[in-house]
Write a protein that binds this DNA or RNA. Structure first.
Lengths: 303, 303
DNA sequence: ATTAATCATCAGCTTAGCTTATCGATGCAA
DNA sequence: TTGCATCGATAAGCTAAGCTGATGATTAAT
């Protein structure tokens, strides 16, 4: 039996992710020779090299790749076992790392943090905002404790906890306000502005209009809902946004906002965490609070 | 993040299984105080006791039970990762990304894959077929593990491993079969069909006939040796092909194949990989097998 | 009360693992 | 090419984690 240490795994994981001895060492808060020594020891223990050292770049060997996958799993499990410590007493405390998607964050994040800081004074929230896929990866590797995103995720290892539903509304230039709200298939022909690739909201909008993801038509894209509304305001086209975004994003613009009469497009925002997280009970409690908070906002309803 | 160590888990697992500090310590081949200290440290890190010390017997707390389950899982995963070490020394396994040039692939690829799958049952070959320059780029950027192409490449960072030599033969229409084999400089004047730009075999053929690459004469080109032979068969001219291609490409045609008497044109097919690749030993072994395989084919000889 | 069993504590030692300084190789720009 | 910058490996020395062996404290059984 080989005497691996968790340090070995931590250091190797940093090296594998960062691909650079010096910077990986920095990330581990140790010196570069210390990291080199540990990696070397790992390779000695294994009897085979894990990384290919070329002049400018390093690359994992096949063994290294395999080792990395398993090491990450172990590190993730160790992260989780640490959570047991918090079960020790009473209300949840310490730090929770929260992921949240960009099409929700601006309208809910401050409210969430504010509310939780009142409910749990000894709890600190570390938010991270990015697209769903990246959040889910981080969640599964225990780099996040929970995520707020659009459901469903449909990962067997993850628990989904629905918070609220919200409709999508149509945002048009002022001059088009008098016209009837177009049907989804009419939207296909119009200048529909979308978020860039990777945002789940983009896919949901495309799906509503029954446009394939691989539709070769080059569409104009924006990096945020805010940008999209500004583009609409400048007369570049029209777009969909979630209802919760309306107050903030249409402020200071002359755009017209319209609801869809029937077949209303909507999404479900929910909380997601690892089923194996020992804090499941506490996360559930936290979810109830977020649900309450979400459903109290204009433009939302119970799922 | 808590600094657990695998030692913590090992010692705790022993204690939880054996239920006795002294004997658990013995099982871990350490002294009893050493084990006590580690368990105590664990409890400090977690902020709660893991074991209830009664006079004669110890008992896990609820937290201890949960911790034990998870610790065992982690230990088991660590055991598993150790297995990687065992496989590291033995025969090569996993995936190897192979590049191969189009003037070799049709006549050798299936044989290579078949042979390697027998020699190394746990090895999977991912082939990629394109012209030399593109393969070499991919190799140097670690998008390929090795390449089969015509030597020399003459890149200092790459290792070349000669496999076999093969001659070029002349392919003519049936009606010309009786005529003597033309000399290289006679070929210059004839309707020589060539592969398109980028194929090393094209350059080798041109070089044999002492034709400059930048010769402005527009020559007829084909996209594959197969096409060239078909064109010859249709009476459009004559061409050179490597000897190994003869059986496959002349099948079903009436073309005439002739060898050159002296100054025989030939090329060396070899294997190429990055000098820095830690799998060098395994690649060398693999090369020996390919060499054996190549030299057993008709129309080849040792380099 | 006495004894045996068991875990905690203490003092002292060994060495794993860290730091800083430096080397040697390699790629890049002048 | 030559000189410079980058990057990983190596070397020497220090610190503290973690071990041993001896001993103490507590409790159950006799």
């Amino acid at each position: 039996m080989i005497n691996f240490t968790i340090k070995h795994f931590r250091y190797f994981d940093a090296l594998a992710r960062i691909g650079h001895f010096g910077r990986a060492a920095e990330a581990c808060a140790i010196s570069q020779p210390a990291l080199s020594a540990q990696i070397k020891e790992l390779e000695t223990l294994l009897g085979a090299p894990l990384v290919e050292r070329t002049a400018r770049k390093i690359r994992l060997t096949t063994l290294g790749e395999e080792f990395h996958i398993r090491a990450r799993k172990i590190l993730s499990d160790v992260e989780e076992i640490s959570e047991l410590a918090r079960l020790a007493g009473g209300p949840i405390k310490g730090t929770l790392r929260m992921g949240i998607i960009p099409t929700v964050a601006p309208y809910l994040l401050t409210a969430i943090i504010h509310r939780l800081s009142i409910e749990f004074p000894d709890l600190e929230i570390h938010p991270r905002e990015t697209v769903t896929q990246s959040l889910i990866d981080d969640l599964q590797q225990s780099r996040l404790d929970f995520v707020v995103a659009a459901l469903p995720i449909s990962e067997p290892s993850l628990r989904e906890f629905a918070l609220f539903d919200e409709e999508f509304v149509l945002v048009r230039a002022q001059k088009d306000a008098a016209q009837p709200v177009p049907s989804p298939d009419r939207l296909q022909q119009m200048k529909l502005l979308l978020l860039e690739e990777g945002h789940c909201f983009r896919d949901q909008a495309l799906s509503f209009c029954d446009i394939s993801k691989s539709d070769p038509t080059l569409r104009m894209e924006g990096t945020s809902l805010s940008t999209l509304v500004q583009m609409v305001n400048a007369g570049l086209g029209l777009t969909l946004i979630p209802e919760m975004a309306v107050p903030l994003e249409t402020n200071g613009t002359t755009v017209s906002v319209a609801k869809f009469a029937k077949n209303t497009p909507k999404r479900t925002i929910g909380m997601i965490w690892r089923k194996t997280n020992p804090l499941e009970t506490q996360l559930m409690e936290l979810g109830s609070i977020l649900r309450q908070l979400g459903q109290a906002r204009p433009g939302t309803r119970a799922p």
